[in-house]
């Protein structure tokens, strides 16, 4: 199903390079919170686009945890990425209310046309596709988030147009 241009691993992306001082600053700022680990991981991902491997020991040290514990948390949650995403991220809903409005066919078609698999990034590093299970837009399905902006009542043409628009 996947075209030859589909790549899952480390494309050329716009995610900023690792910056230890920056990461340390983010961690320091949040380390005092009760239950600081998730806020820190979210902040790191917001800054870098993923949770860089290099950050794990820094986080562990700041919170007095083992690296294995931090790694265990990072991998438990679907949100945290283990590799940098493309410049744009499309989260396409796969849950029941969207299924009732053809979400499966929508996703399959989109993946075919763009040579993508779930969690995959286009060859040019422009777009990462991620599955999501419900966005609370179930009364205007099928739904998606494109770079955090909600989209609804999607069909093939509308979705392609919106994605092209964002990438232009």
């Amino acid at each position: 199903m996947q075209g030859p241009s589909a790549t899952l691993s480390h494309p050329a992306v716009a995610a900023p390079p690792w910056d230890e001082a920056l990461a340390a600053g983010i961690i320091r700022e949040l380390a005092g919170l009760e239950g600081a680990l998730l806020p820190i991981l979210h902040a790191l991902q917001e800054r870098f686009g993923w949770v860089p491997r290099e950050a794990v020991p820094l986080v562990a040290e700041a919170l007095n945890l083992s690296r294995a514990e931090v790694h265990g948390v990072v991998t438990f949650y679907h949100d945290f990425r283990a590799s940098p995403p493309g410049r744009h991220v499309l989260k396409l809903c796969r849950a029941e209310a969207c299924q009732a409005m053809g979400a499966e066919a929508l996703a399959e078609g989109f993946m075919r046309r763009h040579g993508l698999a779930w969690h995959g990034t286009t060859g040019d590093g422009g777009l990462t596709l991620e599955p999501v299970f419900c966005l609370g837009l179930c009364a205007c399905a099928p739904a998606a988030l494109l770079d955090g902006e909600p989209l609804a009542r999607l069909d093939d043409a509308l979705l392609d147009g919106l994605v092209e628009g964002a990438r232009a």
């Binding site: 849950a95 029941e96 209310a97 969207c98 299970f133 419900c134 609370g136 837009l137 179930c138 009364a139």
Partner: peptide
């Protein structure tokens, strides 16, 4: 609010 089909929250 993880349930599909819900959005009241």
């Amino acid at each position: 609010e993880g349930d599909s089909g819900t959005f009241a929250d």
